[in-house]
Amino acid sequence: MKIKSIATGQQRSRDRTAARMKEAQSSSEARSTIPARFSGWRFATSAVAHSDGDIQIEGQRAMSVAESWSRVMSLLREHAPADHADLPGPATEDLIAAAEERMGIALHRDLRTWLLQNSLDLPEEDVDDDVMCCGFNGFPDEGSFFLGIRAMERLYANRSRPWGFDPPDQPDDPFWRNEWIPFLSDQDGWSGKFIDVRDGRVGSWFVGDPTVTGEYESMAQYFDFVADMLKRIAAGNNPICKVVEGRLVWS
């Protein structure tokens, strides 16, 4: 998995993005009508996310972004151990603080918590300066990858604007806002996911298409979706991905 992202073509990337959004929508609709599932427990209602990074379940203990990410890592370690072994450890508080100062914005606590568990930057010697983003390709999807703090800062610098949004004549419905911090992307920055620092909600972008805000109520909810996807792959129920010799292989 320790490789640079490989371009799969703009139309193929668009098709994959549309398929993921459809699957996410179906998953969200299912959660509204059947018991929610978190860490192997079942509850009588769906989750409600709060700005402190927890998912509040009526009458039950909240689930944090740290717990939901740990669930993803546990499933990856169990079913794709070779991929799991490639992933680096956490960022430091000093590294995050320095990035925040250069970016000119404070990260949402969900994002900070996640980076303090795993900051998924490639080793510096493996970074290709000729592409916008580098990462561990194929996790969580073909042609896209999670961003570590260095890759995150680089893409944010490319996306942010002095006036706070882009394009400048669309303040109410922009393609990009400075309050959105990318945490997943393809190698060109054409598509990916971001967290809104104002409320912790997760959205997605694809160049040429309207930006989707509030796709997930929180990073914890998005990571729960990733965990469910890994379970489907492990069970052989994902038509475009399987595990081969401990690695996720996309077709």
Rank of each mutant, 00 (worst) to 15 (best):
G53N: 05
Q60V: 11
G143L: 05
W180F: 03
R201W: 01
D141F: 10
A98D: 13
D224W: 04
D224R: 12
W41Q: 15
A47T: 12
E124L: 14
N178A: 08
G53P: 03
A44R: 10
P81G: 05
S218T: 09
C134Y: 02
D172C: 05
I195C: 08
D126F: 08
V207C: 09
E125A: 14
G89A: 08
Q221S: 13
P35Q: 07
T33M: 10
D86H: 03
T92D: 03
A157K: 10
E215N: 05
W114A: 07
W69T: 08
D126M: 11
Q117P: 03
V244E: 15
A235D: 15
I34F: 10
G164I: 06
A30C: 12
L75F: 09
R61A: 11
V72H: 05
E179I: 04
P210S: 07
L75Q: 10
P90G: 02
F146Q: 02
R20W: 14
R232I: 00
A49M: 04
L122N: 04
T8K: 12
S32E: 15
S28Q: 11
M103H: 08
D196E: 03
S28V: 02
D173H: 09
N118C: 09
T8G: 12
G189S: 08
Q221L: 09
P90C: 01
R154D: 07
T92C: 04
D126N: 09
P123G: 06
S27A: 11
A47V: 13
A234F: 07
D130A: 12
F139D: 04
R14N: 07
E78T: 11
L107N: 00
D83Q: 10
R14S: 06
A227E: 06
V207H: 06
S13V: 02
G135S: 00
W250F: 02
F139G: 01
F165P: 00
K231I: 13
R37W: 04
A44P: 03
K193M: 15
A24E: 08
P239G: 02
N137C: 01
D172G: 13
Q221G: 06
G246H: 06
L248P: 07
D141A: 13
F223H: 14
S70W: 07
D121W: 05
G236Y: 11
E124M: 12
K231T: 15
I57F: 15
K2M: 13
D130V: 05
L120N: 07
E153D: 06
F43Q: 05
D166H: 11
T33Q: 12
I34D: 02
A82Q: 14
P174T: 03
G104V: 04
V207Y: 05
G143K: 09
S13R: 15
R201N: 04
L248A: 04
V244K: 14
S185Q: 05
L75N: 10
W190G: 01
E245K: 12
E153F: 00
I105G: 01
A151K: 05
N118K: 10
Q10E: 13
R71F: 05
M219Y: 01
P88G: 09
L230Y: 00
D196K: 00
D141L: 09
C133N: 11
T33H: 14
G192I: 03
N158Y: 13
R12Y: 14
A220S: 11
I57D: 06
N137W: 08
E153N: 01
F194L: 06
P171H: 08
R42M: 13
